[in-house]
Simulated assay, not measured.
Amino acid sequence: MPLGTIVRLLGKQSQMGYLDEVYNSVEDLSSDYFQTKACKAMLLKPLNAASSHCHRLKINIDDTKPREVYVCKDTSCYAHCAFSSVPDTLCKCGKVMEYAGDRPENDAKTAAAGSDNGVFVIGSQKFITTDDLQIGNVKIKVLQTRINSAVLYAEVGHDFVDLVFGLLSVPLGCVTKALSQRLSKGCIDNLYRSIAGSAEGCMGPDYKRMLLAPELAPFFGSGASQILEAAESAPKKIKVDSRFSCFKIGGFSNLGRCREQAYRYNSSYGCNRHEFTYCQNTTKTAEICELDPKLHGVQNSNCDAYVKQGPQSFMVTDDLHVRPLTLDSSLRVVSEGKVQMKDLVEKEVALTKLQIMELQRAALMTCEALSSVLLPPKKKKKNLKHLMY
C-alpha cells in the first residue's frame, strides 16, 4: 500500500514520523505549484499497483478505485485512444478528461489465483504471529542555531519538495526494502523479514516479489522512488468492444451503441423503415492506452516531477511541513522557535544520495527529520552520579 494511502486512511494520524505533515503540506499547497492538478490528486490518493490482488483480501481497507477510467469526451479530439486512471488529467488537446466508468476486471491470471483459497499465501495454511509481527545531489539553504542544536527551516527549490512529496506515492514495501535495517520503529521490519525468510514456500514466487519489491502504479514514479530504486508498473492498455468515439459518448455502460437497432422515419416513403444504425467505420473495437496524468497537454519538461519547476522557493520546517517561502512565514517560524536573530546562522548544503535516503527514513521515524540528518549527533550527557562511585 502506498504511504500516502496509509496516512489518509488513518486520518493523518499515522504516527509514521512526520509523513502526516508532508500529507498536510500537499493538501494545503495550491494546485498552481504542481505540474498539473492531477499531480496533487496522485499524491493525496495514490494508486496501488497490486490493487487487483488486494481487493480480493477478506479485509481490504484501501478504498481507492484503480479501475476508474477517464477519457476526453470530445469526439473530434485528435488524441485518439487515450485514457487515464486519475481524475483531472488533461487530454493532449487540453481538455479535462471525464469519467467513463470502471474498466471490467478481465485478468484471467488474477481470477485463477483466487481458486487456491489465498491471495498472496498458498492454500489455507496456519501461522504463528508474535506480538512484534515477526513471521543526485540537491542543494538547500538551512537556517539553524549557531550551537547546532536545531534546524528551524530549510529554504529549498522544487526538486527537494518533489523528493519529499513523492514519498507519499511509494509503497511501504519499497521503503522497507531500500532502507533495510534502518527502520527500527514499529514491526514492519519483522514482517518483511518473515516474508523473505520463514514464510518461504507459503506463497508463489510472483506474489513474493510483489510483496518484497512492490511496484508503483503507472506514472506514479518520482525522484523519491528513483532514490529508493522502486520500479514503476507499465502503463495499462484496455480493449473495448466499441469504436473509441462511441466509447467516449457511452462509456463502459453503453458499449453496444455501435450495433444497436433503431427505427428511422423515411420521408420519401412516408413510413418508418427498420434499419441498423451502424457507424460508418466498420471497426467495432478499440485499444485505449493509459495517459500520463503529469502531462500538461503536449508540453512537459520533467515527466517524473509532481511539483512545477520554476523560481519559487519553499520553506521546509524540521517536521517536514512544506509551504511557500515568504518573509512573513520566515519571521513566524523564528518567532515560534523563540530564537534571536543573532543566534541563527544560514548554511548551504549539498545533499548526497545517502543523506536523501536518511531523510526518507527520518520522515517515518522522528519529529526532527532535518536536524537528525543535517546536524551532528547530540552527545549523550555523562551520568555524574555514576562517576562518583
Rank of each mutant, 00 (worst) to 15 (best):
A38P: 03
A38F: 05
C39F: 06
K40F: 09
K40G: 07
K40H: 09
A41I: 07
A41W: 00
A41R: 14
A41L: 07
M42W: 06
M42H: 05
L43D: 08
L43Y: 09
L44W: 07
L44Y: 04
L44R: 10
K45R: 15
K45W: 01
L47D: 11
L47P: 00
N48D: 15
N48Y: 14
A49D: 07
A49V: 08
S52W: 00
S52E: 14
S52T: 08
S52D: 15
H53A: 10
H53C: 01
H53D: 09
C54N: 13
C54L: 13
C54P: 00
H55V: 14
H55K: 13
H55A: 04
R56P: 02
R56W: 14
L57I: 05
K58M: 07
K58G: 12
I59S: 10
I59E: 02
I59P: 00
I59A: 01
N60D: 14
I61K: 12
I61W: 10
D62G: 11
D62T: 07
D62I: 12
D62Q: 08
D62R: 12
T64M: 05
T64W: 01
T64E: 10
K65R: 15
K65F: 05
K65Y: 04
R67F: 14
R67G: 03
R67C: 02
V69D: 06
V69N: 08
V69W: 06
V69K: 06
Y70E: 05
Y70S: 00
Y70D: 02
V71F: 07
V71E: 06
C72A: 11
K73D: 12
K73T: 15
D74N: 15
D74G: 02
T75S: 04
T75A: 02
S76F: 13
S76R: 11
C77V: 04
Y78E: 15
Y78I: 10
A79M: 06
A79G: 11
H80N: 09
A82E: 15
F83T: 02
S84Q: 07
S84A: 14
S84M: 03
V86S: 03
V86T: 15
P87C: 04
P87V: 04
T89Y: 02
T89L: 02
T89G: 03
T89N: 02
L90N: 06
L90E: 11
L90P: 03
C91L: 11
C93N: 12
G94D: 05
V96Q: 05
V96N: 04
M97C: 09
M97L: 14
E98I: 02
Y99H: 12
Y99N: 02
Y99S: 07
A100H: 03
A100D: 04
A100R: 13
D102I: 04
R103H: 06
P104F: 09
P104D: 08
P104E: 05
E105R: 15
N106I: 11
N106K: 13
D107G: 05
D107A: 11
A108W: 03
K109T: 01
T110I: 15
T110S: 10
A111M: 14
A111T: 06
A111D: 05
A112V: 00
